[in-house]
Design a protein around this nucleic acid. Structure first.
Lengths: 219, 219
DNA sequence: ATATATATATTCTCGTGAGTATATATGCGA
DNA sequence: TCGCATATATACTCACGAGAATATATATAT
């Protein structure tokens, strides 16, 4: 008998990998929901297992500890800031145009991952020390990116601001805060919130005609 | 023997009341510090007692439960919003002028009570249901107040905004966020942060010359 | 000086939950 | 069909912490 077609092997592995990934995802989904509702410390692994209809051991087979669940979730939350920094590096041209795109991009991510973002703000103190620092540096990189852009716009006379660092904090707050009030079932649509906040952000830094930078975006 | 001068009585009582109040305050101070650093659930009453150099029973003699400590702290956090709403009711005149004063007032309070504010955001879920609702309605009243003012300014042509509710959320975020980044030992002074954020807020809603409303304020 | 109330300390109880050790089932390769 | 690895379940340990019960010290009143 001939040996089996070796090309099958990776396929089998990829199915297994896919199943593993799905299991991981489901565990994380449940953990996000319960951590978000009750808080990290107040949620037991038992109750997460119960919510999934499995036992605690199932979770331990995929994650080494409760803290590791939180780490994975917080990484997903910090990813919004990281991705936005990466996105900003792909942009060039007019600072106002770039700022608008950055805010839109960031707000959309914040809204999409509201719960993870909320958890990484709320529960950062329960993280292992090194992970906590990683989160902090994500925030710092985001802030520096924004401050850099604002300084650039200020230097070229596009933006009218007293202090770029403070303005960056103000814009960061305006955009980040969405995770506290945005309701997916509410009257707002993520896309239009992102566009409106981008328009408000442009005005905050003294761009007189924000709409000209957002004319083709959905409202 | 004559009976004791009855006027002494209230004085003794007031001393006792004062001492009681001091004890309460110290317990709350310690609780705020530890809850803020480690989180509510992760902090034991034992460790709060230890931090104070007393026993757990000392705390139980002033507060009925651990949750009652959190309730007291969260009330202090929500007070920033409540007081600002009350303050806004004392103002009249130009909407831009009022908005600037409101933002300044609110930011100063948020900064002063950063830790309580942070706790009432982070730990609201650990609160008894009715207290949680009270907090929510504080936030709502604040939002409605701001939205009302923005609508007023929009109607009179002072403010240029698409949607007052969304703009209120944006300004709320800009101002609230200060509790996450303000460092009392850092480069900023609370007063000037409050004034700068008020200026940025005015520009966000389309007031062209914010400084004319803030000329006499400290920067 | 003695009785009474109040503040503070000491010592338990009891539930809960993270993590582990051990058992069983399921699927896969030969 | 058998044997092995891995996935899942059951049953335990062990520490911790909220709150209560009980004891002691301190202050006030008579």
């Amino acid at each position: 008998m001939l040996s089996r077609n070796p090309t099958v092997q990776p396929e089998i592995n990829s199915i297994k990998a896919e199943v593993d990934e799905i299991k991981r995802r489901r565990i994380l989904e449940e953990a996000i929901g319960q951590f978000f509702d009750k808080g990290y410390e107040a949620t037991s692994l038992e109750s997460i297992a119960e919510g999934l209809g499995v036992t605690k051991q199932f979770i331990y087979s995929r994650f080494r500890s409760k803290a590791e669940l939180l780490v994975a979730i917080c990484h997903a939350g910090a990813a919004a800031a990281d991705q936005t920094v990466a996105f900003s590096a792909t942009l060039s041209g007019d600072p106002a145009q770039r700022l608008a795109q950055i805010i839109r991009y960031f707000v959309r991510l914040q809204i999409e991952h509201r719960r993870e973002v909320a958890l990484y703000f709320r529960e950062a103190k329960s993280l292992p020390a090194d992970e906590g620092l990683a989160i902090d540096s994500s925030k710092q990189r985001f802030h520096r990116m924004l401050r850099g852009l604002l300084n650039e716009g200020k230097a070229s006379g596009k933006f009218d601001i007293a202090d770029a660092s403070l303005a960056a904090s103000a814009l960061g707050g305006m955009a980040s805060w969405a995770f506290t009030w945005f309701q997916p079932e509410g009257r707002w649509v993520a896309e239009s919130v992102a566009t409106e906040l981008a328009a408000l952000a442009l005005r905050t830094v003294g761009v007189p005609d924000p709409l000209s930078y957002l004319a083709d975006e959905p409202r």
